[in-house]
Design a protein around this nucleic acid. Structure first.
Length: 152
DNA sequence: GCCAACGTTGGC
DNA sequence: GCCAACGTTGGC
C-alpha cells in the first residue's frame, strides 16, 4: 500500500498503535478491488511515494476487511466523491495496523536492481496503483533485503 | 517543476 | 462504443 509521507506516513501509522487506522481515500477501482481481497491478518508492505527517496519503509497487518469508505460522502474531505451516495457507494477501505518498521527501508532504486522481482507491479513503468498485490516471492526478497526475514 | 503514463469523462 | 481531452500520479 502506497502513501505519501507528507500526508500520512508509516510513522503516523505506528503512532496509532494497535487501534490502527482506516485506509481511506483510495479512488481507483483496481486498487479498491485488491483491498476487497484482503483478509484479516494479511501482511502489508507500506511504501512511501512522492518523496525524495521512494521506498518500502514498514510492515503492517490487515485488522478489518474491506468496508465502505465514509470519506466519499464527506463534502469536507479531500476524498469526497459527488458521484457516490450511501445508496450507491463506490469506495471502500480496510483497517490496518503497523507491525514494524524495516530496519533499512527498501528503496525503489534497490528494488529495480534486484533480480527476481521484475514482475512486481510497483516496478512497472507508469504504475499508479496505490494498492497492489505482492507475491510471496517478492515479499521474501524484500524482507531478506530489509534484513528482517527472520523476524516474522 | 517537468513530463510520461494512466484512468476517467463526456461528446459524438 | 470510440476516443480526444483532461486531471492526476509520481519518479526524476
Amino acid at each position: 500500500m502506497k502513501t505519501e509521507p507528507d500526508v500520512f506516513s508509516f510513522g503516523d501509522l505506528q503512532a496509532l498503535g494497535t487501534q490502527g487506522t482506516f485506509w481511506e481515500g483510495v479512488r481507483n477501482y483496481q486498487a479498491r478491488n485488491f483491498m476487497r481481497e484482503m483478509r484479516v491478518g494479511d501482511q502489508v508492505l507500506i511504501y512511501h511515494s512522492s518523496t525524495k527517496s521512494p521506498a518500502i519503509v514498514g510492515l503492517a497487518r490487515v485488522i478489518q476487511e474491506s468496508q465502505t469508505d465514509l470519506s466519499q460522502f464527506d463534502v469536507n474531505s479531500p476524498y469526497f466523491d459527488a458521484k457516490a451516495s450511501p445508496e450507491k457507494p463506490r469506495w471502500e477501505g480496510v483497517m490496518v495496523q503497523a507491525t514494524q518498521a524495516l530496519k533499512s527501508p527498501v528503496s525503489l532504486q534497490d528494488l529495480r536492481a534486484w533480480p527476481g522481482i521484475e514482475d512486481f507491479i510497483l516496478l512497472r513503468k507508469g504504475n499508479r496503483l496505490s494498492v497492489m498485490p505482492v507475491t510471496a516471492k517478492v515479499l521474501e526478497i524484500v524482507l531478506k533485503h530489509a534484513m528482517m526475514a527472520g523476524d516474522e
